[in-house]
């Protein structure tokens, strides 16, 4: 356990979250060996997947108390392992779990977090990160001012997902949990999971509709196109506020931040708040009847 670079692997009901694999890829670009932390219940078999994606070592904690991501037992264990082995860097995905974990571990270890990073390099062992601020209207170079663990969360899809190499080998070490169930305040009672939908933040292609689609029925062709392309459906706030599509689909400052390879904006003017959520998309296509709509300033192709 001498690796200086650690990656927290997030799994949900046995499925590794894509953004964690992106974090493994980013870790490899920093140089040196990579240790992955894999916590859960009945997840031992995932260690090989983690190694294939770039880990040299996997610390596995397999226990009933860790079945669901809960910040109390997860952070307690991650902090204890970090205290013991003194890694220089811990990367996690900037997901709900990654944000909660990093904030809590930072308190335990009296350090800080650089959150939602889109660019990362190491200079003399010190992290230099780029993170969007003011909803992506500006960027900031962020570094650590003190010694201690450098906690960094990476924005999903900002770093390429590594190709798995099944021939890679690594060491798997089992570790025990820190907290017993009666020391954990939060109990998970149930889930209501949305099935069969592509998650907006992980989507390679997003087709989004705005006020210009004219009504709830305007989303039918949008859904069809998204399905054909294997993508997800997005929306502007105007469409959400009108009740044409649930809020979960909203892209923008008060919705989701996305960075797909292709973003097709249909009947969306491209307000400053909408742009905040989608300006890091690689190729943007705008379909709009108003040639002056601000969305055309971002778009590669317009119709």
């Amino acid at each position: 356990m001498t690796n200086k670079i650690w990656v927290f692997i997030e799994q949900f009901k046995g499925a590794i979250q894509p953004a964690s694999l992106e974090a493994l890829g980013a870790a490899r670009t920093l140089g040196g060996g990579v240790t992955a932390l894999l916590l859960g219940q009945g997840i031992g078999a995932l260690a090989q997947t983690v190694i294939a994606h770039g880990a040299d070592e996997v610390l596995v904690a397999d226990d009933a108390t860790l079945a669901d991501f809960r910040v109390e037992p997860y952070a307690a264990l991650v902090a204890k392992l970090a205290q013991e082995h003194k890694p220089a860097i811990l990367l996690a995905a900037a997901t709900t779990a990654g944000r909660d974990l990093s904030a809590t571990v930072a308190v335990e270890l009296n350090t800080g977090v650089i959150a939602d990073v889109i660019g990362l390099k190491l200079v003399d062992g010190k992290v230099q990160a780029v993170k969007p601020v003011y909803a992506g209207k500006l960027l900031s170079d962020v570094t650590f001012a003190k010694d201690g663990l450098q906690l960094v969360t990476l924005r999903p899809r900002a770093f390429p997902k590594p190709e798995p190499d099944p021939a890679r080998t690594g060491i798997v070490t089992n570790v025990a949990p820190m907290l017993a169930e009666d020391a954990i305040s939060v109990k998970v009672v149930d889930y209501a999971i949305e099935q069969g939908q592509v998650s907006l933040t992980d989507a390679k292609i997003i087709v989004s509709g705005g006020r210009g689609v004219g009504g709830p029925e305007g989303f039918a062709p949008i859904r069809e196109l998204a399905q054909t392309l294997g993508g997800a459906v997005g929306a502007s706030r105007a469409a959400v506020d009108a009740g044409w599509i649930p809020y979960a689909h909203q892209v923008g400052q008060t919705g989701k931040t996305v960075s797909p390879d292709l973003y097709i904006a249909v009947g969306i003017s491209g307000s400053i708040q909408h742009q905040a959520g989608m300006r890091s998309s690689k190729t943007i296509v705008a379909i709009n009847k108003d040639p002056e709509a601000p969305i055309f300033k971002l778009a590669r192709y317009g119709i």
Partner: peptide, 14 residues
């Protein structure tokens, strides 16, 4: 503060 942000700048224009 363990983190600092000495430089803030506009994103590259597309």
């Amino acid at each position: 503060s363990a983190t600092k942000w000495p430089t803030i700048y506009p994103p590259p224009t597309r």
